[in-house]
């Protein structure tokens, strides 16, 4: 088993830990934190694969993941602050969407 294998398994583990958080938690803020963990998993995978194969594309994909995470956090937290007034920040209570 090579170092790349171990790192890819750890990156899958990070993704699955975040997936568990998104599915199991009912507070929107905790789901957003779990989404951050989910995005960190693929980032680790890209960097590890890029370092193993000696190519720069891994770092480039990491930059793209980073931009996605930044946009997601900004929008997610704005939506959270907006919804908290109506539902108290509980995603189960927000079953009806209205503009």
């Amino acid at each position: 088993m090579t170092a790349l294998n171990i790192l890819l398994v750890l990156s899958a583990g990070l993704f699955l830990a975040g997936l568990f958080g998104v599915a199991a938690r009912r507070t929107l803020l905790m789901q957003l934190i779990s989404l951050e963990v989910m995005l960190a998993g693929p980032a680790l995978g890209f960097i590890a694969a890029g370092a193993h194969h000696g190519s720069i594309e891994g770092s480039a994909m990491f930059i793209l993941v980073l931009g996605l995470a930044a946009a997601e956090v900004a929008l997610g937290l704005a939506i959270y602050l907006h919804m908290r007034r109506a539902t108290g920040g509980d995603s189960d209570a927000a079953t009806r969407l209205r503009g």
Partner: peptide, 8 residues
């Protein structure tokens, strides 16, 4: 990465 996994 193991530390990151545990913390996550």
């Amino acid at each position: 990465a193991t530390v990151a996994f545990g913390a996550a």
